[in-house]
Simulated assay, not measured.
Amino acid sequence: MKFTNMMTLAASLFIFAIFGAIATPVTLEKRDVFVPPVSSPRSGTVWKSGERHTVVWDTRNAPVNITNKVGVIRLRKDDLTTPLILASNFDILSGRQTVTVPNVVEGDDYQVVLFGDSGNFSPKFTIKGSGIQF
């Protein structure tokens, strides 16, 4: 008899735990997502492979509590973000980061993507070859 009562009690606690957890409201922390606009490179900019340039973004409206302050800059072409990482592990609040332009196919449809909390694209710009003759 005691065994049956223990089983009933255990089953009741299990059911309460499941439905109690479902009925319990979840409180989420307030998170501030920072999406700084990229100001350089801008439309009409021309970079050459092998050169060093500074990517610049506006940090004036940065929230106090940023979810992710570690930045990554990647290259985007033809509206697809490439696996090419131009810079990483920098403070998103620095507002600038120097990068080396990779050796890529020439084109006028490149963008840099600034990642931290989210991805933000620069305007489209041009990358030309290094001019080295082989």
Rank of each mutant, 00 (worst) to 15 (best):
D109T: 03
Q97K: 12
K2I: 09
G131S: 13
D108L: 01
S40T: 11
F134M: 08
A23N: 07
S43M: 13
T67D: 13
S94N: 13
T27D: 11
Q111W: 01
F3G: 03
N89R: 08
R96Y: 09
F125S: 04
P63L: 06
G20F: 04
S39L: 11
H53P: 09
E51C: 12
T24S: 12
T98R: 10
A23M: 09
N5L: 04
S49R: 01
E51H: 14
R96I: 07
V38I: 15
I22S: 09
D91F: 03
S39F: 07
T24I: 09
S122A: 08
G129E: 14
S49G: 14
A10L: 11
A62R: 02
G119C: 06
F90Q: 02
V113L: 13
T45P: 10
P123K: 00
F16P: 05
N120K: 07
R60S: 15
I85S: 13
I15C: 07
L28F: 14
L86M: 12
L86T: 03
V99L: 10
L80G: 06
R31M: 14
T67A: 13
V35E: 15
K77Q: 12
Q133S: 15
K77D: 03
S122K: 00
Q133H: 14
N61A: 15
F19L: 06
D108C: 10
S94V: 04
P41F: 01
N5D: 05
V70L: 13
L114C: 05
P36L: 07
S43L: 15
F16V: 12
G20L: 02
V26K: 08
S122H: 01
D109E: 09
I22A: 07
F134H: 13
N120A: 11
F121H: 08
F14R: 02
G119I: 03
S94K: 09
V113F: 01
T67P: 08
R76V: 06
G95E: 04
Q133K: 15
H53I: 07
A62I: 08
V72Q: 11
G119T: 06
I127K: 01
R42V: 13
N5F: 05
T8V: 09
T8I: 08
N89P: 07
K77T: 08
I92A: 07
M6T: 09
D79H: 04
L80I: 04
L80W: 02
L28M: 11
G95C: 04
N61Y: 13
T45R: 02
I66W: 04
D108H: 04
T81P: 00
K124T: 09
P123Q: 01
I132D: 11
L13V: 10
A11M: 12
G119S: 11
R31A: 15
M7N: 08
E106Q: 15
F134G: 15
L13K: 00
A11W: 02
L75Q: 06
I73Q: 02
K48N: 14
K128M: 15
F115A: 06
L84A: 13
L9C: 09
I132G: 12
P37L: 03
P102C: 06
F14C: 12
G129C: 10
S39H: 05
S94T: 12
G129N: 14
N103K: 09
V46E: 15
I22C: 07
V105M: 11
K48V: 06
R74A: 10
G95I: 01
G116C: 04
P37H: 05
G107P: 13
N103G: 10
K48E: 14
I22F: 10
T67I: 12
F19G: 12
I127F: 03
P102W: 00
F14L: 14
S43Q: 14
V113S: 02
S122C: 08
